[in-house]
Design a protein around this nucleic acid. Structure first.
Lengths: 196, 196
DNA sequence: GTCTATAGGCAGATAGAC
DNA sequence: GTCTATCTGCCTATAGAC
């Protein structure tokens, strides 16, 4: 049995990834430091450099781990094989769960810093969002042929709208702290995809 | 005649605000420094501290100036007195124009960093987004009674959806660099508010 | 208003002992 | 694998001359 990518590293490396992800969701890439992670794990900065040579490499590994977890979640929704509307709600719930922990999507948070990120991190981010878009596009096409979803624009453009709305809603939930606002936005989005 | 808030400061202060806004849109609040602004304006950091005592105060002034410009633009749309759909397109165009300069909404960019911002900046951000929401809500109600806009959820929730989608679309335009993606997202959004 | 000079702190990173 | 110790550089901010 091949272990998942996230666990192919040593135990400490996995702890570092988990801790760094939390801190990045809070402070962003430019705002977090090896010192933050080291203090949280009660090890030294030098130990971090043993596992990840530099901040850029840690950043890459973080996106890769996040993307892998997200891909697993989408694959689980595929395996469940429900109707398109259920898949859509499953996708939305992935985001709602993150917000429930009072954080935002790590990749959305990093996307805000895109212009200042090292090239490998940029590429990984683009790949992450592309994957979501393709998955959603498939679900939307299915919903359209089932007749359970109604939308006027192309499935691809509608997928972009869904991703944008969810990431944007998480962005605005910060300033309000208010999950109710996120839910209201999502309800509005879903009803727009139902058609009247 | 009372000069507008943005120009009540000296010429240098206005230059600092304009330059700092550009840099913050690129690097964010935690990523930008007095050194960046000073270098761009070819003055010293100490001169900046004369006009704005610290980074937090500069940050506050930046949001205030941005909000004032945005409010002026919305007031101009009010004065134009067009139909609801035109108001909506006007609101969207404000964002498209920013993206056309390869930047994103400064307040959206700052919202991503909300958790690490000083309290006065947080409060100013909340106020900014609330103002947009109220303005949109009014436009949506008008469109609904005119019959030019059709949407199933409450005007307030639909306003939240619009703001979220636009901010999210700008967020995702970074990773793609691609204005076409933004436009596709917006088209999808508008068609969802037309009803079929 | 703008400058030089500098303080004090934290960043990312490395060398080498254990 | 983890540590101590240290380097270099940039950060925010201040004092005081011009």
């Amino acid at each position: 049995m091949t272990p998942p990518a996230t666990r192919s590293r040593s135990g400490t490396a996995a702890l570092i990834l988990a801790t760094a992800a939390e801190i990045i969701q809070l402070k962003g890439y430019s705002g977090f430091s090896y010192a933050d992670v080291a203090a949280e794990l009660k090890i030294t900065k030098a130990a971090l450099h043993y596992h990840f040579p530099g901040k850029a490499e840690l950043g890459e590994a973080l996106i890769a781990a996040w993307a892998a977890r997200f891909a697993d979640a989408l694959a689980a929704l595929d395996a469940a094989g429900g109707p398109a509307l259920a898949r859509l709600h499953g996708y939305i719930d992935l985001h709602a769960r993150i917000l429930g922990k009072r954080r935002m999507c790590m990749c959305g948070r990093l996307a805000a810093e895109y212009q200042t990120l090292p090239a490998p991190m940029r590429a990984a981010l683009v790949k992450f969002f592309d994957h979501s878009q393709v998955w959603l596009e498939g679900s939307l096409e299915r919903g359209q042929s089932e007749g359970t979803l109604r939308f006027a624009s192309a499935p691809r453009d509608t997928a972009l709208l869904i991703i944008s709305a969810l990431e944007g809603a998480m962005l605005l939930a910060g300033p309000n702290g208010d999950i109710e606002r996120f839910n209201a936005t999502v309800t509005s989005l879903v009803s727009a995809l139902h058609g009247p």
